[in-house]
């Protein structure tokens, strides 16, 4: 059974249907890329999976449990973390406090400490800046903080919404390296990206979303050589 199963999902904003019946699966340990043009519904999909928006119909099964109607705050402790589009760090809290917010649902102080240590190891810049207000970090640093914050909940799956958006090429490479390492450490990754080339390069499988529907899906390596994908998303 897949770790995350989305079946025939429909999502509306008022009368507008943003997601028109999509289904996809994420297996334990996979990196899945979800690519698509602006407004295709990628963010809406992630928001629905983590409970920020309620779908009109369809179901979301996570580790065998139906979470379609579960309040979002109860999904986090089940092992799902979400790095939202635009980072959304808490600007008025310090870097350290932001990371601690990530561990909000956890109780064991020692485990949290170990986890913090691991995050600092992965993102040395965050440790250097731990007392700094998050709002004063650079865009790339904020992205690292948003990722570190999500990792503080010790997720079994992490959803990332355009983590490379607006970053310089060096930072983009760094972010993708980090995603690779997160995956190697055993965390399942569902990655939404504009940078289709890089996303397909690290993904196992991928789904292409077009105006609320999945138009293509398959092995990431194969999709990279698909003519339609090349033309629309790889700029070739």
């Amino acid at each position: 059974m897949a770790m995350l199963e989305v079946k025939d999902l429909h999502v509306h904003y008022g009368v507008i249907e943003a997601i028109k019946g999509i289904s996809f699966e994420v297996e334990q340990g996979e990196v899945i890329a979800l690519i698509g043009a602006n407004g295709a519904g990628k963010t809406t999909t992630l928001h629905t999976v983590t409970g920020l928006i309620k779908p009109t119909s369809g179901s979301i099964i996570f580790e065998g449990k139906d979470i379609t109607r579960t309040p979002g705050y109860k999904i986090v402790p089940m092992g799902m973390a979400h790095v939202p589009e635009g980072r959304r760090v808490f600007a008025q809290l310090s870097v350290y406090d932001n990371l601690m917010m990530g561990a909000y649902t956890r109780k064991d102080k020692n485990e949290i400490k170990e986890n913090l240590h691991m995050v600092y190891e992965r993102f040395p810049r965050l440790e250097e800046r731990k007392t700094q207000m998050a709002g004063t970090l650079s865009g790339g640093e904020q992205q690292m903080l948003a990722m570190g914050r999500a990792l503080m909940s010790q997720p079994s799956i992490i959803l990332m919404d355009e983590p490379s958006m607006g970053l310089s090429p060096i930072f983009v490479n760094e972010i993708f390296d980090i995603i690779k390492r997160v995956s190697q450490s055993g965390t399942t990754v569902l990655l939404v990206e504009q940078n289709a080339k890089k996303a397909l390069a690290i993904a196992d499988r991928a789904y292409v979303l077009e105006t609320g529907m999945i138009s293509l899906e398959g092995d990431a390596g194969e999709l990279m050589h698909n003519d339609a994908v090349k033309k629309a998303y790889l700029g070739e």
Binding site: K74, P84, R88, S153
Partner: peptide
């Protein structure tokens, strides 16, 4: 306090707070 910081998080961004597992 923990609940106090949760309040700060909610005041800044209710959606992001929920993504931390905070009951908004």
């Amino acid at each position: 306090t923990k609940i106090g910081r949760a309040m700060t998080a909610v005041s800044e961004d209710q959606g992001a707070a929920q993504l931390m597992g905070i009951n908004v």
